[in-house]
């Protein structure tokens, strides 16, 4: 009996190819501009001229992120009409039929998981492909990754398999919302902050 479904993301080997992003869009018929899963490119560092040669101190990696179905979902806590609720197995769900479009949850979520959909005039987000899960299947993004960089399951199992890291730069402190997310950091993540890295592809996320 799963108590908290979560994602595992292997940032060490994610190439940023975005198969996961589009797999999700196809499954959920999302228009351009509505990204339930998106892939952040984090890049930083620079170049130094040493004699005649340019030498890089560049760091770069990707973060594929949907909704982390947090154990303390600030979106649901913030929603005035209780349109967001949490299943017994941990999946956080937005009932778009109840959403009034106030977009407060979009501010509240530190992972920017909530996305406004102009077609329905409501907010929506990753629903963990709950219908596939219920039928014994796999979330679309997890099944899509050519590098097999995504996994899912009960957080207890994921922790055993992959460790305890829930944060790499520039993700927020996991204590804020207790995300159901385990990450394997890219080797560049440790140096990202000192190299003044930031998200390099804002217009794509």
């Amino acid at each position: 009996m799963v108590t908290q479904y979560g994602f595992f993301f292997n940032a060490a080997t994610c190439s940023g190819c975005k198969a996961c992003q589009v797999a999700c869009k196809d499954r959920n018929d999302l228009e351009p501009g509505v990204l339930w899963r998106r892939v952040y490119e984090v890049a930083g560092g620079g170049w130094e001229k040493k004699g005649e040669v340019w030498v890089p101190s560049v760091v770069a990696y990707n973060i594929s992120m949907a909704c982390n179905h947090c154990e303390k979902p600030v979106c649901g806590l913030a929603c005035p009409v209780k349109a967001i609720s949490k299943r017994e197995d941990g999946i956080v769900f937005v009932d778009t039929g109840a959403c009034i479009g106030c977009r407060y949850c979009e501010w509240a979520c530190p992972y920017t998981a909530l996305r406004f959909d102009a077609r329905t005039n409501t907010v929506s987000k990753c629903n963990f492909c709950y219908d596939a899960i219920d039928a014994g299947g796999t979330p679309s993004c997890v099944a899509s990754c050519p590098q097999r960089a995504l996994d899912f399951g009960d957080m207890a199992e994921l922790r055993k398999k992959y460790g305890d890291v829930r944060r790499i730069f520039p993700l927020p402190d996991p204590a804020q919302t207790e995300p159901a997310l385990i990450i394997k950091p890219h080797r560049d993540a440790a140096r990202a902050e000192e190299r003044a890295a930031e998200v390099a592809n804002w217009e794509e996320v």
């Binding site: 806590l77 005035p80 009409v81 109840a98 959403c99 009034i100 106030c102």
Partner: peptide, 21 residues
């Protein structure tokens, strides 16, 4: 300014945790 103003009758429903409520 709400997108679905007439669903807003439930806007006080989450008084316990929602600062907006």
């Amino acid at each position: 300014h709400l997108r679905h103003p007439f669903r807003a009758r439930r806007v006080l429903a989450n008084f316990r945790t929602s600062r907006l409520s």
